[in-house]
Design a protein around this nucleic acid. Structure first.
Length: 590
DNA sequence: GCCGTTTTCGGCCCGACTGTTTTCAGTCG
């Protein structure tokens, strides 16, 4: 079972508990949900943690859930879970993925209409709603019946609780709305919120905060955004709309005097906020998105914060950059005034994963622009150096001699460009070489000797098991010319799961042998993922942040790789393409 | 059911919005 399947199982147990007896199981419901969330985001397969006896290291997994998971791996099922889930009709569970449906509503409708089949429950409910039978139920009405139909319609169009957009797309959508809001005279400040502000690789809804002395005017202005499909809700402080692209945008408005608490609260993450509240409680205060008040004295006046900085200071903390607000150690560091200075885009001095159109007869994905155009663009971006990394010439249809000739010709061309642009920028001659399924490289030693080094990566036979894939990657990286492992998990967000590696083993190898790992900025990759970056970094592994550009406009995607690095706690010293040219040249020659 | 530099027992974040309600339940973040 994959981690996300296990997470789903636990969240179904949680849902079943809340259906069976919400009050009695109140804290189990929370506990199972928390464990599910942890497992959903855990990068290592649980089976592996189980084998290593590390299940209890997961936050939210204690004795009880641990023993259930052990049973799951031993027997393939958990009797205790089955007993609980058995008490709830199967047709309830598919509904839980539909926005607007929670355990109670799903259970109520399934039992009311005696729906038995999980496969057809959604279609069945649509028909029932269309025939007007839901509006008559106690607790339901015309409006809720219409809302249910709307939910199914939007679900059918791909809006689920888990469908998420890639960061650059979300950033672009938000930018348009932020531009629109900034044109309102009633708006003072605007910020993105939530996972968007924290720069997570994927974003669910777009959340935005505005400060204003006239919230109602701003909410009205927001609801009349030109691309609005429909207004989902509109209160005195918040509003949600659905845009024509079927994307939800939420707005929160607050008076400038209390804007800091709102901004902090809705930037999250949830875990970060819960931890902050615990700190506030220990100081005798209750923290909310409005500010703090004395815990005992409910009548006491609320203390407002104009800025986040004031709020963090009140709690005895440094201001924490949004990207690392995940309760992964940042709060403890902020308390000791020891937060790292995270890497910034302006620290980047070059890009090492660039595919030009120079003809090397590669098997896939040639670049669209000449080396010279890419050099000029790199100079425009104020880079000090760059590295070309076309794919290796295809093996089928080329002899080793032919491959050598192609690479030699490319070498000559690069030499010419080097002398031409010597004063403005330095050029590294790399290549993106496939690691074949047997662990050898797709280019022989003689050809590789022409290069400054090579990036290696996996482009075939993705479905190897964890151990074999790890062996394959480490063997490929062991070649003296292999210096950088590109897009290490091979994931394509929303399209393909990455392959699983024995990460700790790989990171130890990289640290020991001075091999670097790439943080690939391509929007669907953002690979190595941030949680693994944090682990690798803690082991002393160094990184390159690269764009993997196949065309000039893609070279600006660097900022998204930088976001990943920031989320992984990286400082300038962790990222090799922030080094001076001479230092970096030395690293390659080593 | 989880968790601990105040605790191995007794807590567990806090609030908005909606629809169907005469005071609240459900969902969401």
């Amino acid at each position: 079972m994959t981690n996300s399947e296990i997470a789903k199982l636990l969240s179904h147990v949680s849902a079943a508990y809340s259906i069976l007896d919400n009050k009695k199981h109140y804290f189990q419901i929370i506990a199972y949900q928390k464990a599910a969330e942890t497992i959903e985001h855990e990068p290592t397969e649980l089976k592996e943690l189980y084998n290593e006896g590390k299940l209890k290291d997961l936050p939210g997994v204690g004795e009880s859930i641990k023993s259930h998971l052990e049973e799951l791996f031993k027997k393939g099922k958990v009797t205790y879970f089955d007993d609980i889930l058995f008490q709830v009709p199967k047709a309830v569970f598919p509904l839980l993925d539909v926005p607007g449906f929670g355990p109670k509503k799903a259970y109520r409708l399934v039992t009311e209409f005696n729906l038995k089949k999980p496969d057809t429950v959604m279609d069945d409910l649509v028909k029932i709603a269309e025939s007007g039978k839901i509006a008559g139920l106690p607790g339901f009405g015309e409006k809720s019946e219409k809302d249910i139909l709307q939910s199914f319609k939007e679900y059918g169009m791909g809006k689920t609780k888990s469908a998420r957009m890639v960061l650059p797309y979300a950033t672009e959508l938000a930018r348009k709305m932020i531009d629109y809001l900034e044109r309102s005279k009633d708006v003072k400040e605007v910020y993105p919120l939530g996972s968007l502000r924290r720069k997570k690789s994927t974003v669910g809804d777009i959340d935005i905060a505005a400060s204003s002395k006239n919230p109602q005017a701003v909410l009205n202005y927001f609801a009349s955004y030109p691309h609005t499909e429909r207004v989902i809700e509109k209160g005195t402080r918040t509003s949600s709309i659905l845009t024509s692209g079927n994307r939800q945008i939420d707005l929160m408005v607050e008076h400038p005097d209390g804007f800091g608490a709102l901004l902090q609260h809705f930037t999250g993450s949830k875990d970060h906020n819960v931890h902050l509240r615990e700190i506030a409680l220990k100081k005798g205060y209750s923290l909310s998105d409005y500010g703090v008040k004395k815990k005992e004295d409910t009548k006491s006046k609320i203390k407002l914060f104009k800025t986040e900085q004031e709020l963090y200071k009140f709690l005895g903390l440094q201001w924490v950059p949004p990207e690392i607000r995940e309760d992964k150690g940042e709060i403890e560091l902020a308390q000791k005034n020891k937060l790292p200075r995270l890497i910034e885009l302006s620290d980047i001095k070059g890009d090492f994963h660039l595919h030009s159109s120079f003809p090397v007869e590669e098997s896939h994905d040639p670049g669209q622009n000449s080396m010279e155009d890419m050099i000029k663009n790199a100079i425009f971006l104020k880079y000090k150096y760059l590295g070309f990394s076309e794919h290796n010439p295809s093996q089928s249809g080329h002899s080793n001699k032919q491959i050598y000739d192609l690479i030699a010709k490319r070498h000559e061309h690069i030499e010419k460009l080097r002398s031409k642009y010597n004063k403005s920028i330095q050029i590294f001659s790399l290549l993106e070489t496939d690691i074949k399924p047997d662990g050898t490289l797709a280019v022989d030693d003689k050809s590789l000797s022409l290069l400054d080094g090579t990036i290696v990566s996996i482009h075939s036979a993705f479905s190897m098991n964890r151990q074999d894939m790890t062996k394959r990657v480490i063997q490929g990286l062991s070649h003296p010319k292999a210096r950088i492992l590109a897009h290490p998990t091979g994931r394509l967000i929303n399209q393909r799961e990455g392959y699983d590696l024995e990460w700790e083993k790989l990171f130890d190898f990289c640290q020991e042998k001075q091999k670097a790992i790439e943080i690939n900025s391509w929007p669907q990759r953002l690979d190595l993922p941030d949680n693994l970056v944090q682990i690798a970094r803690s082991k002393g592994v160094k990184f390159f942040i690269n764009t993997d550009s196949h065309a000039l406009p893609q070279m600006v995607l660097m900022e998204y790789g930088v976001s990943v690095a920031r989320r992984g706690f990286c400082q300038r010293s962790d990222i090799l393409n922030t080094f001076d040219y001479n230092k970096l040249r030395k690293w390659f020659n080593n």
